[in-house]
Each structure stands twice: as structure tokens, then as C-alpha cells.
Design a binder for these strands. Structure first.
Lengths: 330, 330
DNA sequence: CTGAAAGCGCTTACAG
DNA sequence: CTGAAAGCGCTTACAG
């Protein structure tokens, strides 16, 4: 009742192990008759190749990796990554190695190790930073990779991204069209590339607009909002870099007696059940993260099969107006 | 610039490959002097063992697996799993294979394959069902496993769980003490073991209390709430099986003009930022899922090192009263 | 087109 | 205590 190996197949099919290997992998070198015989024996035996042995003989590891360098305890709130992972797996038949680390150094170390150990065939790079050291690392390692969310700064790596800048511009235009003059932005982690891109787009579309830096948590989102609403020039609209901060901001507004949307319009970058379920429901930039993950998976598959680097733009997040935004009433 | 193998170490240390292996793994068979020499050569060479080769020679795969059999697109809302995974990894130095599948059959198939391929040393079983077929499967396979969240129905497997029943009882007692007579429950997936446990505890604590079955999504949570609030005997309190449904329920109440908490008290099983951020913030059962994951990881580590099966009870979720619950006013 | 052999990097009996 | 060898299950040149 041991699991069958190519040796067993070879014996029953009356050929050599090498021939079995060639037949199983659809490679030339065996006659069609032999191949068919091998295949039928294999399936009758319920044969499944050992990915371990395969990886050792320097073929594929049949696995890809994704490492998340964010404080583990804050990860739960980020539904983005789970959606992304689910989308990736819908498209990928191989295993996904997922690791949560607490520093960029640990992340770099992990790529080295995974690659050295033949544990993965390739990796997804997320949370791209400006001049991200991971890009030259995987390039020099020769580790196949797809940069998820990096428009620019991804060297010669294949990249899949959405146009944050355009999305941000659409939000600001929308607010301007509602008559808003003082628009503020509560931004995500400053070190992330997309934060920089959104900052720039925001500045360009809303010259003089205030940007307060935060970190995606409800605490910092609330604090930033309090700062903005109690300041000298109170904004009439705030654009948040994620759903959690936007909801926390709405809470602070309520607490301070600032009516939403009458006195303050709120927009969230990245939609979620959270945005839809609260009152008033939040206007948000929505996108299909699941599909985005699937696209990233296809891109990595292409890289693994030797395709040259590509740069794929995903659909731009779409603004979904809800009750948290309105015409300025002053 | 190839990575060093035990052969390289053996050459430089002037010993055999076998001796290197023994020395590196801290096993008897080599003198202390030899061991030290080997270790110092290894570290000077920056040696790292190939987990692939190690797995092939039937040692450990240095990885554990977790498969999630839930509709991928709904996973994003479940912060529970991400917290759990983060907690697991905080305690576990090995790799985690994560796979999202869409059927129980696929899940079973995956365990078979992982184990046959020597891809994992053990697995975490989550979302335990009543008479779960995975339990006899991994037992017969001899696949080391830890059942997460299964109190009962986990055969001879090690299990880590929280006392859902006690938690549910505490919620109902709390509501009864506030004077509530008609308490309802919006339950999660009926097939899950903890749903059954909570159902039973609810029935026992609130005889005659209505239970409506749902599936953790905001849609079903809203529908169940609508059903309850427009029915003949409107409940004065509803206990939801997760945060998303509770928030959706609060939305429906607002829509129907049912005041929370004056006319309706709401409690969520499982706390989250969602519960804290909305208005009124929801009374919830809170627990440290990150710590729960860490505990599960330690349990699996123990199983892997040959410990006999244990049954560990995690801390019972604690009720955190917030503004969504109040004395009955009728 | 096919077979026999070497090799991937380890671990593990088995002799000395 | 140590060395030489076999074996894990594949793949891949290399001969026939």
C-alpha cells in the first residue's frame, strides 16, 4: 500500500524509469505507443509524482511564495490580502507558501532561503516601496517574480498594477464637481509606493489640499480626522486611503457633531462590506481584488514559463457614490 | 558561488558527509570536537540545509499546511483566519502551505496529496463539522494534525478550542439580566460544529428563542434580521454569529426604524474593528485570535515531536458591553 | 526511439 | 566515535 513511484510504473509497463519520466512529462523521446502504455499504467496505479524528488532533481518546486511584511496583529483588518490570495489560488494549481514577517530584513532573508532551498519557483512581491530593495534582490537572484501593485520602480520585473493616480484624480474631480474647495487626504504608510503615487495625484488635482499621514489603523485614522476637523481650515471633504480609517473618521465626525455628508463628505479608497454596512454608507473606490489576484497569478505563470517581463495594467478602481458624499452646502 | 552542501562542509572539515549530517542535527555519533569543527565550517560557509533533499530522505518537510474550504470570494470578510494565520506563524518557524479550495472533496484530496508528496509534516484542521470526515482521514493517514476549534468530534487528534457554549450562555444571561424575554439568534453555517454547539447552548439558556440560520455574509445576515423584525413576535435582542452579520442587522434595524438599543439589543459573536467603529458600537464577544493561533501552533509542534494527543481549552471569549445593548424599555 | 547510469543533497543503517 | 555506502524519487545527459 505504498504509493507508486516511476519505478513501479517502469516495471509494469516494461520500460525504463527514464522513459517513464519522459512519457509522463510529455517530452519527446518515447514512441506514442509507449507513452500511452505508461500513462495508462500510471493512472491505474493512481500515480502522483513526488514534488519533493522533482524539486531535488532541479526541476520545479511546484510552489510559489508570498511574504507579508506587516505587523501581524494588524493584518486581520486587511481584507485586501485575503481577497488577493484567494484570487491567486483560483488561477494557480500549485501550492502557495505564505509567510508573515515583521521586518523587511526578514523578508529579504526569506526570499534568499526559499530560493536557495528550491522551495518556490517564484514569488509575488506586494507592498512595493519606492526604490524597493527587493527588486534588485530577486533580479540578481534570478528568482522569478511578479510585482503586485507596482507601477514603476519594478525594474525589469513583470508587474501587475492598477492606476492609483487616475483613481485618485477621479475622486478629487468628483468632489470638486460637488463644489468642495477644501479637500484633505488621510494617507497610508508613507513608505509604500502607491501612497506616493496617490499623494502626487492628489496634490496635482487639489492644489493646496492637506495630506495627513497615517497607517491604515482605526486609531491613526481617527486621530488624523480629529486633527483635520479641529484645525483652523476645516476641510469639507476627506479622502481616506482605506476603509477602516474612513469608517473611523466618520465616527470622529459624529462625535464632534460634524454632519456627514451635510458638513463633511467622506470617500474611502478601497471598498468593503464595512463601507456598505455603516450609516451613512461610504462613497468608495471599488475594485475586484479577487480578479486582480487571478491576474497576478497568470502573470507569474507566464514568467515561470519563460515569457519576457510584461507590465499589465488592471482595471482602474471605480468610484461608487453613496450617501457619505454630497454637494457642499455652505 | 553555488550554495554549499554537506559535501563541501565534509571536505573542509575533513570528515564524511554522514558525520556532517549527524553533527548538524545534534545527534550522537560524533565527538564534540568534530561537531564543533563542522558547525564552525558550516556557519563560515553560510550553509543552509536543503529542505527538499531532507524531505526526500524521509525526514521532515519543514512545512505545515492549512486548507480553507470556503467560497474564496467571501473569505476577505473573515478577519478571523488572517489573525489565526498570523498567530500561527508568530510561533512557527517553518513554512505554511495555504490553500483555498471550493469543496470538501478537494480538501480531502489535498491532504492525501500533501502527505503522499511529503510536502507537509502536519496540518491544521479548521471549520470542524459534525462527524467530520477529515478526522478519520488524517488519523488513518497518520498525518499529524491539530483540530482548531473542535471541542468534541475530533477523535484522537490534538485539539485546541474555546468554549463557545459557555460564551453563548454568558451572552444570553447578560441579555436576560437586562430584562429581555424574546431573544433570537442569527446563526452561522449549520454544518459547522461550533454552530451546533452554540445552538444548543442558546436553546438551553433561552428556551423558545428563535434561531435563524445564515452563512456569515452581510446579505444573509440582513435577510435574517428582516425576517425576525417583521415577524409576529419581534425579538428585543438578537445575537449574531459574526461581526459582519451583526452590522448588517443593525443596518436593517435602522432602515425599519427599530431603534438600537432602545427597541433592539444587538450582540456580535467575535469582535472586530467593524464592531467598534460603527454607531452605536456593538456589544461583542471578544477573543485574542492571534494568541489562539499561536496556541494551535504550539500544539502542532508538540504533536510533531511525538507528544500524545492533548485537548487544550483556550480562554473563553469575553463579553464586551457597548452601546448596542440596553435594558429592555417596554 | 529506448535503456542504463549518474546525480540532485540529504539521512540512515551498517561496518570498522 | 567515524567512514563508506545505499537509498529517497525523480530528471537528464549519454550511449546504444
Amino acid at each position: 500500500m505504498k504509493r507508486p513511484t516511476i519505478k513501479d510504473i517502469a516495471t509494469r509497463a516494461g520500460v525504463s524509469k527514464g522513459a517513464v519520466s519522459l512519457a509522463l512529462n510529455g517530452r519527446p523521446g518515447v514512441s506514442d505507443a509507449t507513452r500511452e502504455r505508461v500513462l495508462s499504467v500510471a493512472s491505474s496505479l493512481g500515480y502522483r509524482p513526488s514534488s519533493t524528488a522533482r524539486a531535488l532533481s532541479s526541476a520545479s518546486a511546484d510552489a510559489v511564495g508570498l511574504v507579508l511584511a506587516r505587523p501581524a496583529r494588524t493584518l486581520g483588518a486587511e481584507s485586501f490580502f485575503f481577497q488577493l490570495i484567494a484570487g491567486i489560488q483560483a488561477e494557480l494549481s500549485m501550492a502557495l507558501l505564505l509567510q508573515v514577517v515583521d521586518s523587511h530584513e526578514a523578508e529579504i532573508e526569506l526570499y534568499r532561503r526559499w530560493w536557495a532551498e528550491h522551495r518556490v519557483d517564484g514569488v509575488f512581491l506586494v507592498d512595493l516601496r519606492v526604490d524597493d530593495p527587493r527588486v534588485p534582490l530577486v533580479e540578481s537572484l534570478g528568482l522569478p517574480a511578479v510585482v503586485v501593485g507596482g507601477a514603476g520602480h519594478h525594474g525589469n520585473l513583470t508587474s501587475v498594477w492598477a492606476d492609483d493616480a487616475k483613481a485618485m484624480t477621479s475622486v478629487v474631480s468628483y468632489l470638486l464637481s460637488l463644489g468642495h474647495k477644501r479637500i484633505a487626504r488621510v494617507a497610508g504608510l508613507p513608505s509604500l509606493l502607491h501612497t506616493a503615487r496617490r499623494d502626487a495625484a492628489f496634490q496635482a488635482a487639489a492644489p493646496g489640499g492637506v495630506i495627513v499621514s497615517a497607517d491604515y489603523t482605526d486609531e491613526r485614522g481617527a486621530a488624523a480626522t480629529r486633527e483635520l476637523l479641529t484645525g483652523a481650515q476645516r476641510p469639507t471633504a476627506i479622502v481616506y486611503d482605506n476603509d477602516v480609517m474612513a469608517v473611523a473618521g466618520a465616527g470622529v465626525a459624529a462625535e464632534l457633531g460634524v454632519a456627514v455628508p451635510a458638513e463633511l463628505s467622506i470617500v474611502a479608497f478601497d471598498d468593503s462590506p464595512l463601507c456598505r454596512l455603516i450609516h451613512p454608507p461610504l462613497t468608495a473606490l471599488t475594485r475586484d481584488t479577487f480578479a486582480f489576484g487571478a491576474r497576478a497569478a497568470r502573470a507569474l505563470l507566464a514568467v515561470l514559463s519563460g515569457a519576457r517581463p510584461t507590465d499589465t495594467e488592471d482595471t482602474t478602481p471605480v468610484l461608487v457614490p453613496r450617501a457619505s458624499t454630497a454637494q457642499i452646502s455652505s
